[in-house]
Design a protein around this nucleic acid. Sequence first.
DNA 1: AAGACGAAAGTGGTTGA
DNA 2: TCAACAACTTTCGTCTT
Length: 307
Amino acid sequence: MTQSQYVRKCPECGSINLFINKEKGEIICKDCGLVIEDKMVDFRQEWREFDSDGAEKKRRSGAPMTYTQYDMGLGTEVGQKSDLYSLSGKDRNKFFRLRKWQYRISTAIERNLKLALAELKRSSSYLKLPQSVEEEAARIYTLAVQRGLVRGRSMESVVAGALYAACRRHEVPRTLDELSEASGIEKKEIGRTYRFVTRELGITILPSNPADYIARFSSSLRLSPETQSHAVEILEKAQESELTSGRGPTGIAAAALYVSALIHGEKRTQREVADVAGVTEVTIRNRYKELLEELGLEKEIKKVKKK
DNA sequence: AAGACGAAAGTGGTTGA
DNA sequence: TCAACAACTTTCGTCTT
């Protein structure tokens, strides 16, 4: 068996110097900053089977239990026909009633879940989200359905809201614009259901950290790793100076990246940065101005300009 | 001609009486 | 429930490269 098929190379620069961030499920090329794969799930089993006897012993589970299956891969029914013989009279009627209700309730919810989870899968693969996020979103959605929070709202918007929340919780934030593009639901609507669902379910979500956006933005702008890490440093300083509170995290991330690119002689226009970050040039300008004032970065930029 | 800059008016959401 | 408010956007004119 050759080893080479398992060694990953960066398709952009051929480097094998890759940084694997398991928490976020991202693989990033350290040399060119390209995000190679957002989704890393190893589906191979981690043991080997030599014969059917060994296989029996080593396989230790049925299908994995997962929220991305509408019934978690397990099914439940009230009783079985064969139980009937042990019952009589009242009990027998009760048995039938329970079974009927179980059937009605579960089919209504399950039918909804089946559709919703298909939609969820579609959106999350479109956004290249890691499995763990999809799983979390499915969990949130399932809870929402059980509490009847979907009533009066479109199923798709609740799915999008759940996904958005799951992304935030796993610190792989996507912007509302991206969610909107993936699901075809209006930004406003997603935001609304997101807030509603998280409030009703009592899910607390930390404000997203601008640094979480840097890797992705930087990758789509094809900036060098130096620029990227410098942008993160700038962000840290900005946070100490309390420039970040109350501001949109994407705007701050975009401005930090813009400044960092200037300093490293990899100038991108405000327009370009604004587009990938999903904010306007004006916002970048404002944050940019604040960054310069607070952190005294003017000298560094002038240095580069002279060259 | 394109990009950067800044002013002014408008939008959607939060907060506090 | 309403008004004040902060952040962000849109639009547009001017300056710089």
